[in-house]
Nucleic acid binder design. Structure first.
Lengths: 213, 213
DNA sequence: CGGTCGTTTGACTGGTATCAAGACGAGTGG
DNA sequence: CCACTCGTCTTGATACCAGTCAAACGACCG
């Protein structure tokens, strides 16, 4: 079990606040692949991801998962659902082993609603989430498949090289076939070059950026 | 000019806080159709919409506007951009005459960052925005045109009846042609019925809901 | 009664998914 | 060292949803 006192995330809280927090919450460990909650579930606790990472996704009518983003410790998780008292708008699955703090939300409100430090944490967290979401919205709503791929190459070159195409495709919410075809096109146009082992050895950043901006 | 003291939004602030706020801000009026900011602009002030309403939209590669949502007074506007120090992620246009409070953001941070009431306002505002955005994300990412229309009919029956199809289409980010065709289909399947003046006189809520959930 | 704005309809297009088959390449066991 | 196999990538044919373009139609307004 992780000790809350040791965490940066709570470092600005007083000793009393920390014990207050401990008294209204429990900790739980999860294995890679386990689900923290499903889209549509009613929120019962306010979650803080203490360690590990989550994959956040929505499910469409054809039961396909639409990847939204990853969450890394330490951060509140889906606090929106608690604040607005709505079902979780997406599902969260552990991509590695992790641990969460499960806070009794009602008591949290009572005790911490006017806590200066906690408010700051919340504002920061909410604002960060908004940034992520508006990013997702932009990528999914405005960008074509080609543009998404171009952006991914420029902004995630390493990840691009270390991942299999299937995984990249699922991050970008496109099919592997589309990814393959677009990359073939880019190769033909000289925007990218690969060595014999399919590692990216050259990318025309300028032209790639033009595609997505 | 609207007097800040009179507004519910600031009612929990002390008299000193209000004058502090006044001293670091100015008020400005806008006419219907004017733009508060464009997507991509650098934020220079923290805006509070004091009266009127804004249409918030993004622009795609073909210069088409993608409607995201409306904002009604009184609310912070795009505070995300200030907090995260990023360009505005969308454009905002007045749909009626309005008035905004333009707050010097740097000074706002200095003076109000640890103000209890203001923090609460911020948390509430951010959380509300997050809810809206995740709603938009769901509608645009998960729902088909038919599903969007079904949802709109169920949840906005009055607006549906009082608006021209062109406007409904632009709210739903679909073309008038698609709207027309889908409605024709629904009529054929008996999901909706219209009188001679195209007013909706019957809608099979159950079946419509099935389409979008 | 003519003009304008909005709606409807049809034919076509485009982007991406889907389905199916083949090609490739790295690791494995004979 | 070869051949087999499995996972992955590529390629082609086809399908589908919604957008585009164009024309006809309708309704209301001055």
């Amino acid at each position: 079990m992780i000790d809350l006192d040791k965490l940066d995330f709570f470092s600005k809280l007083t000793k009393e606040d920390i014990s207050k927090l401990k008294s209204i919450s429990t900790q739980k460990s999860y294995k890679k692949g386990e689900i923290l909650f499903y889209e549509g579930d009613e929120p019962r606790f306010l979650y803080v991801l203490l360690c590990g990472a989550l994959r956040v996704y929505k499910t469409n009518a054809k039961s396909q998962q639409i990847f939204l983003h990853s969450l890394n410790a330490i951060t509140f998780v889906a606090e929106l659902a608690n604040f607005e008292n709505i079902p979780y708008p997406a599902s969260a699955e552990f991509t590695v082993d992790g641990e969460v703090l499960k806070i009794d939300y009602e008591r949290f409100v009572d005790e911490f609603i006017s806590n200066k430090q906690m408010s700051l944490n919340l504002v920061r967290s909410l604002s960060g989430k908004l940034k992520i979401l508006s990013q997702v919205l932009h990528d999914e709503l405005i960008l074509s498949s080609e543009a998404k791929i171009a952006k991914f190459i420029v902004e995630n070159a390493e990840l691009f090289n270390s991942s299999k195409n299937v995984n990249i495709a699922s991050i970008l919410n496109i099919t592997p076939e589309t990814l393959s075809r677009v990359l073939a096109g880019m190769k033909k146009d000289g925007l990218v070059r690969f060595d014999e082992h399919k590692s990216l050895i050259y990318a025309d950043e300028q032209k790639l950026k033009q595609i997505y901006s």
